[in-house]
Amino acid sequence: MTRASDSTPPRLTLGGCALLAAIIAIPCCGRGPARAGQAQRPGAKVVIQNKGSDTMVNVAQLWAEEYRHVAPEADVEVSGGGSGVGIAALIKGAVDIANASRDMKPEEIEEAKRNNQGQEPKEFVVGHDALAVYVHKSNPLNEISLDSLADIYGEHGTVTRWSQLGVEIPGVRDDRIVRISRQSSSGTYEFFREQVLDQKDFKLGSLDLNGSKEVVELVGATKTAIGYSGMGYDTDAVKMLGLSRDAGGIASAPSVDNVFDKQYPLARSLLIYTLGEPQGAVKMYIDWIMSETGQKILEESGFVPISRRRSTKS
């Protein structure tokens, strides 16, 4: 228990003020190791900061690990957080490469230019992805239309129970649909809102998870769940639904071929952004990602490479 102060009121001396100011100021000065893009001595270790999309975080990790063998002098540091987080960091100039599963918005490009002496963000398409709609393995549903998805996820959508879609899940009494969504900084979230909900809002009460993998895991553990995530996160506990553009239309499954033929309605590009034309180590890294080795890693993580010719060859 604290004791009440008894006599003199505390006085802040001048020296005390100076000390306090010094304590507060310490974290502001001092900088980390040499960042890529800055001037550096030849042979010195270069750190490439890479942040953004949770959809791409696994493949970005694999790239970074593999690149260590290719170019030992470069160290790629990867973190997730969502496309929005990566782009925000790029705007602040805190990262060299931002991963994004959605395009940068015009106002974000403007802000990036304003904050970084007019350097325009440069976009690279490094692969493609089908945004898959997942349900539990025991769910008898095999395909769904974009309209039904909007009825389930959209703000004024009327579908809240599986029985409304004519679906009966074995061994379940309460058939309310458990909607699993993503946090609002996610590019996947924005892509889904744009493509499925026509930029309208989500129905409140969905479980907004912080990662692509978490969505699939929770769907796998919940019989009445529906969720969306990259096709690379498929597991044995879940099922990817075929998608049709409107009710009664022909549904197509999320697969490499359907993405190339533009049959699958929710195909998107995986992007990386840099500030201005990439230089030195960053440029080498991006070139390597686009190379056959980099694209092969992308394909092995369950995504679709930039060109089909390459994918059949490897």
Partner: peptide
């Protein structure tokens, strides 16, 4: 569970003020 939702029972998912700040501050443009 991080769901914006007025709960009807203790088995419903909710989102708290603290979790909401943690999840969204990173992306919100300064």
């Amino acid at each position: 569970g991080h769901a914006v939702h007025i709960p009807h029972g203790i088995l419903d998912s909710v989102r708290t003020l603290t979790a909401n700040i943690a999840a969204e501050l990173g992306e919100a443009p300064v």
